[in-house]
């Protein structure tokens, strides 16, 4: 008798939500707390790493010399080698834990999607008569869906890149010697990886930006007022790193010469 309907997409049938279910055990609760912490922290560390990474790769703006000098410096001090493993580990860990939150069933993902889309589109169907908006525009649900999508892309492209870097640093397979060299980087980027990196760049900055913003809100950095501010900070960081990354990429792809090379007298 009780036919249930998905009101988000009229016609499709779904099970009606019976409301909150039973309690979990203490051990489970403790485990889930740990998962949450680890996924958040790994995300945070990856994001911080990516900023550092950006400046590291950005050394190419100073020309080959700068880049090589930094790369070698990190390698002879044995910073680079373990970092590869740590980052690879964090990367996999984060991906595994964070994707626990992605709804498992296609049906559920569709619902998620439909809801996010509705909410995002809603503000266009309301008029604002006075200065005060009748509603606050809401995009965060929609952004989450993109966070997942960019995450998926990163999982593929990022692992590829990581393995590549691992081999570069730990084996003499690429280039003249063991380790990262500007010439190899420029060569492979120019040869076509530029597109891969371009996509990866956008994904990383988007995903990490939104991720950090969410992390701040979740743990209480943001009250209502500072949420606007956080959004602004997040937007600034996003565009800053996209811009920087794009220039770096253009240099790597040999489209433009290193703009700051004159600093090192090159």
């Amino acid at each position: 008798m009780d036919k249930a309907v998905d009101v988000l997409r009229s016609g499709a049938v779904r099970e009606a939500g019976p409301g909150p279910g039973p309690r979990l055990t203490r051990a489970e609760a403790r485990r889930q707390l740990a998962y949450e912490l680890v996924s958040g922290l790994s995300g945070l560390m990856l994001a911080l790493f990516m900023w550092g990474h950006m400046f590291f790769v950005g050394s190419i703006l100073l020309g080959d010399r700068g880049f090589n000098w930094l790369a070698e410096g990190l390698e002879v001090t044995y910073i680079a080698q373990p970092t590869v493993f740590i980052i690879l580990f964090l990367f996999v860990l984060h991906a595994a834990l964070a994707s626990r939150k992605i709804p498992a069933q296609l049906k559920e993902r569709r619902r998620f999607f439909a809801l996010g889309k509705e909410l995002r589109a809603a503000s266009g169907q309301w008029r604002s008569t006075g200065e005060e908006l009748p509603l606050k525009p809401h995009v965060e649900s929609w952004l989450w869906i993109w966070q997942v999508r960019t995450g998926m892309v990163m999982l593929v492209l990022g692992s590829f890149h990581l393995v590549l870097m691992g081999m570069d640093i730990l084996t003499p397979l690429f280039g003249d010697r063991m380790g990262i060299e500007a010439s190899t980087s420029i060569a492979r980027t120019t040869a076509g990886l530029v597109w891969v990196y371009g996509v990866l760049l956008v994904c990383v900055e988007f995903h990490a930006g939104i991720g950090l913003y969410r992390l701040a809100v979740k743990w209480g950095v943001g009250s209502r007022l500072t949420r606007d501010m956080l959004t602004r900070i997040e937007k600034f960081l996003f565009w800053f790193f996209i811009g920087l990354g794009a220039v770096v990429l253009l240099v790597l792809a040999s489209v433009i010469p290193p703009p700051l090379a004159f600093l090192l007298g090159g």
Partner: peptide
Amino acid sequence: WFEVVSSDDGVFGCIGLMACADV
């Protein structure tokens, strides 16, 4: 409170979509 709060059915189920606060 621990079991009720600290779990994926509790506050860690929230993934920070923020729609709730906006609506």
